[in-house]
Each structure stands twice: as structure tokens, then as C-alpha cells.
């Protein structure tokens, strides 16, 4: 990192995981970086965005001055509704989550471990925490993707052997996008699937805190169109 390599932008990270969404999927995006997934152009695919506050089928953010003051997504941002939209109360919204109707949740994270554990609700040394809907989503969504930075501000790895801070859920993560690449949690451990343009395998390995499975061919991270 002495060369100042940054890798992917946050939008590029979210575009890459959004490419994994399949036609008809119900998707829940965590606050922070993952909200950028909704900017991706899904073309002919129908993606139904679900928010914890009971909004099913929300669309793009509204422009300034045109906000519906009764309508926000889980991040408190004013959004529009798509024609298929429906609204339920909080208990039904989490019934949708716990009963396995969410195809994928994309969450931010402080740490992810090679066994699929991850942590995103409590920083080291913090009193209290911010769980929101993350524990319900992580335990119950069919797929759990993380969109996060490769290292902390101090340069410490966020991809680790075992989480050092309290976990959100255990063994649930499928896919991790960082600014350095795309990683898959496999039964054998964490595998590097794609690498950010301009970064070397050695740079990725040096900033990862666990053993990394590296195939012979690691293509660059796929970019939008």
C-alpha cells in the first residue's frame, strides 16, 4: 500500500456484487456502502428491493424538493415506489426476512473471517452497539454478501482468520467485495475470485489476515458494461 493503491471505488464494488443479483430476486441493502447497489442498471432483470421498515419494491432516490415525507428506505433516505410496491408493518417486514423470502442481503462489515463469520454491529471497545436489522438478515437471508474496505484506517486487515470483535452471525457469508477484489467463502476457506485492476496478488495477500486460496487464473474484477 506504500504505492497508495486504492483499487475499486465504492460504486465499482457495489456494481460488481449487483451483477450477481438474479432476475426476480428480493434484495435487502444495508446502510452505508451497500445502498450504492441500487444505482446499478439491472437492464431486463426485475429486482425487488425490501427495506426493514416494511417497504417492498422501492425505486430510486427522490430529487431535492420532491421527497415524500412519509416514505424512506432503511437508511432514512427518501425513495420512490415502483409499480409492484407494497407496504407492511415492522413485524411483517421481519417475518419476510426470517421466513427466508430475502434472496440476498448486502451488508457492510468491520471484519469477516475465513469461516464465514462476520462482525458489523460493535466496534472494538464500544459500549452498546448498532444492530438494526443486521442479525435478522444475516441469520435468515438466502445469501449474505459483504461490501467493505480491505483494511482499516490503520492498515490492519479486515479479512481475518477469526473475528476479534463480537460477531453478527456465524458461518453465513457467501461473497465479499472489497476495494481490492472479490472473495468467496468456500468450505476450504477464503478464495480470491477476481482482483481489482492495478493491484498485484502479493498486495492482496499482504493485506489479508488469513490464508487465501488463489487459483492459477485470477481475472480482473468485472466492470459494468
Amino acid at each position: 500500500m506504500s504505492d497508495g493503491a486504492k483499487g475499486l471505488t465504492r460504486q465499482q464494488m457495489c456494481d460488481r456484487v449487483a451483477m450477481e443479483f438474479q432476475d426476480g430476486w428480493v434484495v435487502n441493502l444495508g446502510i452505508g456502502i451497500p445502498t450504492l447497489c441500487s444505482n446499478f442498471n439491472f437492464g431486463d432483470k426485475q429486482i425487488i428491493f425490501h427495506a426493514e421498515n416494511g417497504v417492498i419494491g422501492y425505486g430510486p432516490l427522490t430529487g431535492a424538493g420532491r421527497e415524500d415525507l412519509h416514505l424512506v428506505n432503511a437508511g432514512g433516505q427518501h425513495v420512490t415506489l415502483n409499480p409492484e410496491a407494497a407496504i407492511v408493518h415492522h413485524a411483517d417486514s421481519f417475518g419476510i426476512i426470517r421466513s427466508g423470502r430475502i434472496d440476498v442481503t448486502v451488508l457492510g462489515a468491520y471484519e469477516v473471517a475465513e469461516n464465514g463469520d462476520f462482525a458489523n454491529w460493535k466496534m472494538a471497545g464500544q459500549k452498546g452497539g448498532g444492530i438494526g436489522g443486521a442479525m435478522d438478515l444475516a441469520a435468515c437471508a438466502k445469501h449474505v454478501f459483504l461490501a467493505m474496505e480491505q483494511v482499516t484506517r490503520r492498515g490492519q486487515p479486515r479479512l481475518v482468520e477469526r473475528c476479534t470483535i463480537p460477531v453478527t452471525a456465524r458461518g453465513v457469508v457467501d461473497l465479499v467485495i472489497t476495494n481490492y477484489g472479490l472473495f468467496e467463502i468456500t468450505p476450504e476457506g477464503m478464495a480470491l475470485r477476481e482482483i481489482a485492476p492495478g493491484l498485484s496478488i502479493d498486495q492482496v495477500r499482504a493485506t489479508t489476515g488469513c490464508n487465501l486460496l488463489i487459483p492459477d487464473e485470477v481475472p480482473p474484477v468485472r466492470m459494468r458494461g
Binding site: 421481519f94 426476512i97 426470517r98 436489522g133 442479525m135 441469520a139 460477531v167 452471525a169 456465524r170
Partner: peptide, 26 residues
């Protein structure tokens, strides 16, 4: 959050307690 909503729903539905997968292992 889902547990909070369901704890309220249960109180309003005459259910004293319930089991949920959220927070298991934490």
C-alpha cells in the same frame, strides 16, 4: 430490530415468548 418488533407483536397477540434464529451464536 426484528426481535424488537416481534416482542411487541407477541405482547399484542397474547404470546408470552417465541424462538428466533436472530442473534444465535452472538
Amino acid at each position: 430490530q426484528g426481535t424488537l418488533a416481534e416482542r411487541m407483536r407477541a405482547a399484542g397477540a397474547g404470546i408470552p415468548a417465541f424462538y428466533t434464529p436472530a442473534a444465535v451464536g452472538t
